[in-house]
Design a protein around this nucleic acid. Structure first.
Lengths: 196, 196
DNA sequence: ATCGTAAGTAAGCGCACACTTGCAAAACGG
DNA sequence: CCGTTTTGCAAGTGTGCGCTTACTTACGAT
């Protein structure tokens, strides 16, 4: 049982670095420090191994919740967004691979998009709560606002390393800036001194 | 000379669909309806062909300008953003591939990131102009605002097809909604009736 | 002591890959 | 019409791929 788990972790690592075609059974076996034949005895095929690896190692849906009763939108969004971004950053290579190979391996892409989609739903529900609890008075389009916030987190997490000029620095301050900007667009002006 | 150009276009197409490892010389030759040997006589190696293909077909920097003297920010940003997004959508497969293979082929990634980086610079200069021409009175962080707008365009262009739930519909209205949201965050409230 | 199970080792299969060679057929301008 | 360049075609090289086979080793339960 130990070898199985080790093979799954190794396969996820190799896939993130080399993609599907680059993840040869020999490389995965070496990475897991296991004989290559063990792969085929345990999983039957390279395809089965990689699919199980991405589904288990990649599908961990670590999207945290946002407060049921919002009180400090800026702090809450910043904290939530930072967690989401941190998690996306850890999986950035795997996510990029999955997205770029979605035509050839739709199931892998599906495992990888589950996180952002769940995050988007959690955020939209929170935005609705902001309004129903009277913290936002003006009307706004939940879908557009949540889309822009998620896009900011998603792009920052995936592309900052290759296009650092595009993003506010330092990384630790970025999410708070995104949250402030988004909140301002729906009429919540957070004073500069208020921080997280 | 005709074959050379045809090979370059075919290589770019095949790369976008199959990635570097999946772009076999046989496939490219078939796509270009040319004998496989011609590739090696013209370019010497698969590597040289693909690099030249991405540099020429992918490096076309079609980022339009924004007005030197801004007058109608919402209309101008919407028009500009739509053009940028349309262009990114056409190259979405190639961009995804390039970004996911940046560790193995940094030059390809560089060709592919040039567009978004240029767009970001054009936008930031425009935001500065908005302020210097008195169209925006309050102070704001140009980098954060441009980053969020570019992220919205970038993510929408690259991921809408695989995660449609994340984005406002229809596509044709999305950019205008992004522009309005961004402008509201810097204090420009555009009445609903104003359209593009 | 024996058996079943999971693992390692070594060898090999057929295939696709990037790339090469040799030769004949075009395409072209002088 | 000839000479050069470009292309097509057929065959082949060595390498790495996914996967298989046959045999051996280690070990815990019966």
């Amino acid at each position: 049982m130990e070898r199985r788990a080790e093979l799954l972790r190794a396969a996820a690592r190799v896939y993130a670095k080399n993609g599907y075609r680059g993840s040869t059974t020999r490389r995965i076996a070496d990475e897991a420090r296991v004989n290559e034949v063990t792969i085929f005895r345990q999983f039957g095929s390279k395809d089965a191994l990689i699919h199980e690896a991405i589904a288990t190692c990649g599908g961990v849906e670590m999207v945290p919740d946002l407060p049921l009763v919002p009180s400090d939108p800026c702090a809450e969004l910043t904290r939530w967004g930072s967690t989401v971004m941190e998690h996306m950053r850890e999986m950035q290579s795997m996510v990029r691979r999955g997205m770029s190979e979605q035509e050839e391996h739709p199931q892998l892409a599906a495992s990888v998009t589950a996180g952002p989609i769940k995050a988007s739903n959690v955020l939209r529900a929170y935005l609705v709560r902001l309004q129903s609890h009277g913290l936002v008075t003006e009307d706004f389009d939940h879908k557009v606002v949540s889309s822009m916030f998620i896009s900011a987190l998603f792009t920052d997490a995936l592309e900052r390393d290759s296009m650092p000029e595009l993003f506010p620095t330092p990384l630790s301050a970025a999410c708070s800036l995104y949250a402030r900007t988004v909140l301002k667009s729906i009429g919540i002006d957070v004073p500069e001194t208020a921080s997280v």
